[in-house]
């Protein structure tokens, strides 16, 4: 080939490159938000369910446990029998954190299986300028928003029930959010490893989420458990989140280092789950 031809071709190439770089620049920057936008649209198709559970579950739990069970506990043990406050005040922050876990266990399991396998929309996204890591980011962003709405509604009901004695009680909402995401990111990563669902996700529900809720100081303080069961609380993000929420909701007294451990533990789980999920998505979508 002669020189000038090469020049023309090089020129065309640099033009193409410039056009392609410009076309992909926005997606490189905002791709995660585009994925979140997509997820919001999908959530809109089940918005009624989202709102119904967000309003219904605090009502059910606060009445059943916070009012019903609480009257039994308070009548027998006194108004300040559980860590120095009423049973309702003790229980409410834990229920709030559990509601975040409930959203996580919904949004980070079957929808992930759906996107990779049953209705492989993630492969569709990946064929556009979107990158696998952005798909994971976008899902986390969208679930975080749903979780925030759910937890805020829950918190409003806590106020209505008079379950928040502390002035910094509202901090329990972001704490619940981080708790739900820390647990959820790990669940998402696990789900991303599944080639098929042969009951694993139901097992997670039954043998991880349910025991975690029961043994994380939700309904009774961890230290009333025999020592050989207390480790469940220590590894459970729900326990760390619940205890931290109690510090803000009613001033649960615990050493400052312990509060710090709660924060660091939750942050570490979130980071590990997030990075792991991004890696798995990359491996699975870019084969």
């Amino acid at each position: 080939m002669s020189g000038p031809t090469n020049d023309i071709s090089d020129d065309m190439r640099s033009q193409t490159l410039a056009a392609a770089v410009a076309a992909a620049a926005r997606t490189r920057r905002y791709g995660s938000w585009y994925v979140a936008e997509h997820r919001f649209r999908v959530m809109r198709s089940y918005a009624q369910t989202v709102l119904f559970t967000a309003v219904g579950s605090p009502l059910v739990y606060l009445y059943a446990m916070g009012v019903g069970l609480a009257s039994l506990v308070d009548n027998n043990l006194g108004d300040d029998a559980v860590t120095g406050v009423s049973y309702l005040a003790f229980l409410a922050p834990a229920l709030l954190a559990s509601s975040a876990i409930a959203v996580a266990s919904e949004e980070f399991t079957y929808p992930i299986m759906l996107g990779f396998k049953w209705n492989p929309t993630f492969f569709g996204m990946n064929a556009s300028s979107i990158q696998p890591g952005q798909i994971i980011n976008g899902i986390i962003i969208s679930v975080a928003v749903r979780m925030l709405v759910t937890c805020t509604i829950f918190y409003v009901f806590m106020l209505v029930f008079g379950a928040v004695p502390g002035r910094l009680g509202f901090v329990a909402v972001p704490v619940a959010l981080v708790t739900g995401l820390a647990f959820g990111a790990l669940v998402m990563a696990y789900t991303a490893t599944l080639k098929d669902d042969t009951g694993q996700l139901a097992m997670v529900q039954r043998f991880v989420i349910l025991p975690m809720t029961l043994f994380s100081g939700t309904f009774f303080p961890l230290d009333v458990l025999p020592p050989y069961l207390q480790w469940i609380g220590w590894i459970s993000p729900l326990w760390h989140g619940t205890e931290l929420s109690r510090v803000f909701a009613y001033g649960l007294s615990e050493p400052i280092w312990l509060s710090l451990v709660h924060v660091l533990y939750l942050a570490a789980l979130l980071a590990i789950g997030w990075v792991w999920a991004r890696r798995l998505a990359t491996r699975r979508l870019n084969t």
Binding site: A20, A23, G31, S128
Partner: peptide, 20 residues
């Protein structure tokens, strides 16, 4: 991402979003 911005892809397996 730059190359994909210039491509249209019709995969063998439909991956339209059935929820939309």
């Amino acid at each position: 991402p730059e190359i994909r911005s210039q491509l249209g892809v019709v995969p063998q397996e439909n991956n339209l979003d059935l929820e939309l």
